[in-house]
Design a protein around this nucleic acid. Structure first.
Lengths: 339, 339
DNA sequence: CTGAAAGCGCTTACAG
DNA sequence: CTGAAAGCGCTTACAG
């Protein structure tokens, strides 16, 4: 006798001298079943070592308890995605869901998961989308399959995003408090909405402090470390500033490398602020002051919202902006702290 | 007429005036079906927009084309796991598999996936296991469900691991070449096999070079940054050395922090080497020389092996050790490179 | 509160 | 090479 003969719902039913339907009901916590019956059945399931077959359940109930999470291809550059996934998994586990991980390059395979009814919903970390993604969104909508975007609003789909504007505004306030007087902002790729918002937030914050617009300079970048280095090199060849706010941490790192090379002291001669709280930020010397998007909270909220959309017929339509926190480290103190 | 009426295999069969069995066969590339028939059916599937229901296939075929990947709870500290996952996903996608991500803390849920026949196999990144994990391994073995361990061999289960010994040995060779004369090794937690192997490799490498054993010192640590700092502080209070090899990068970082605090110049006064090529290694100043485990290769190999175990009845039993590469940076050059 | 029965959408011997 | 039929293991109206 093998320990692993498979036990089905019928075995349990037979054992309890009840019907398969009843067993199914206790499995699904149907309140209509008599408590005593439920207990007997529960005991039998235990004794027999019964585990319901997920595929059978999914097939007949039309629900898989699985969601796909789509991350950027180069998520390695931004390990805070691990926090996002941890959050999603934390709520997934507590609600009995599993998560299938996909990078965006495999979007076609996500599309297959959808077509083949293999997932109940999808969480997309979205950035500028191609027609491929847009087509998938609209197909899912027509199918009535819930999904949520993390990053950018698209059409009227549910989304969660970071308050770039507010984050940058708090940077402005901090720069002002510290007494910086000429600020260089380094942009991301021309059209990138996050970068645009961060610049707008910076401007708003500065003007609130009565900071004159002539003392803000803007240089172009593309989010890469090299572009940050280059922007600094080009700007400082002819211009001057006592603080740099880069639209992301990698460019801020580029500026730091430039300073190290030129012997410019950070923060004494130049204050530097980034955005993202990228993994290396706290390890740089000096550690980088930056703005931290609440990835864990975003993950929690995304998964909770998605489950609500999946399980409620009402279909809420979450559209949320979460605040980002200024993380003060040593790279941008006018009154220089400990070295 | 809704675009999304669901098309089943029967619709395709009807459309082709053939049987459901035939459609199923072309779906599964059964070579017994006449080419012309296959073409007709294929066309019909296309026209009707047919997508086979994965749950139904899984239920009747007993195969899910899904595997679970279990990572450490604190994988955030070691973002090279992203490379591992990318590798696993790359081969998964090319072979038509999906991956369910799980942290070890949710091992019970992995156990459920197994019991409920929701996965065809599991990849475990394993470290010291508790009874929970061991019980799961043995249950899977008895069930005939394939799995593979990444990290440590356990019993006679399939595994893939890094050549810690060889990696440390190459560190020894490098330290010798650079002319270091007194070396401090900082261990991990007492019983940890990786640390033991790394020390053994160091000893082997040094003795091959004729390095006298009296010039090697060993201090205790527990892999944490603080323990590296502490080990250095305690050792250098009374002893001396011109190089430190820490059993992992975090402890090496601790040593660096100690040096920064004490004004000890790295590498001029003290060479430092770590192990793991942790994410921060290249961002430290000076950048940390370390040993890099081939995570991508491990992921590829793990998934390929697992699929082979799943799909072949022969059940190969991969037991593999992959070499780790010395990554030379600036933290340990006797002839100091660029600053 | 419980059961009999149909159905979810496939796969796979078994026949021919 | 193809089809009829049973079966995978559940869920869920429908009755009672």
């Amino acid at each position: 006798m093998d320990e692993y003969v498979k036990i089905t719902i019928d075995d349990v039913a037979k054992h309890c001298k009840c019907s398969r339907a009843t067993v199914s009901r206790v499995l699904n916590h149907d309140k209509r079943v008599r408590p005593e019956t439920a207990e007997i059945v529960g005991k039998a399931m235990e004794e027999l070592g019964y585990h319901p077959n997920s595929m059978a359940r999914a097939l007949s109930a039309g629900k898989t308890n699985t969601v796909a999470v789509v991350v950027p291809d180069r998520w390695q550059e931004q390990p805070y995605y691990i926090k996002l996934l941890d959050a999603v998994e934390d709520v997934a586990d507590s609600r009995g869901y599993n998560i299938i991980l996909k990078r965006r390059k495999y979007i076609d395979s996500v599309s297959e998961l959808v077509s083949r009814k293999q997932v109940d919903g999808v969480i997309f970390r979205n950035m500028e989308e191609t027609d491929r993604e847009l087509a998938l969104y609209s197909r899912m909508e027509r199918m009535g399959l819930p999904f949520i975007l993390i990053g950018q609003p698209v059409a009227s789909y549910p989304f969660i995003k970071v308050d770039n504007l507010g984050g940058a505004r708090s940077v402005a306030g901090y720069l002002y408090e510290q007494g910086f007087e000429k600020i260089l902002f380094i942009k991301g790729p021309e059209d990138h909405i996050d970068s645009i918002d961060r610049l707008a937030g910076l401007k708003t914050g500065l003007s609130e402090k009565g900071f004159k617009a002539e003392r803000l300079f803007v240089a172009g970048g593309d989010y890469s470390t090299e572009s940050g280095y280059r922007a600094a090199a080009e700007f400082f060849a002819s211009g001057s500033a006592d603080a740099v706010f880069a639209a992301n941490d990698r460019m801020a790192l580029g500026v730091m490398l430039y300073c190290r090379e030129k012997g410019i002291k950070v923060p004494d001669q130049l204050g530097i602020v980034g955005f993202d709280d990228n993994f290396f930020a706290e390890y740089l010397s000096p550690p980088l002051t930056t703005v931290k998007p609440p990835m864990y909270e975003i993950g929690i909220l995304a998964m909770e919202s998605l489950i609500r959309m999946i399980e409620n017929s009402e279909r809420p339509n979450p559209r949320v902006i979460l605040p980002a926190e200024l993380i003060v480290r040593d790279s941008c103190r006018k009154v220089s702290g400990k070295v």
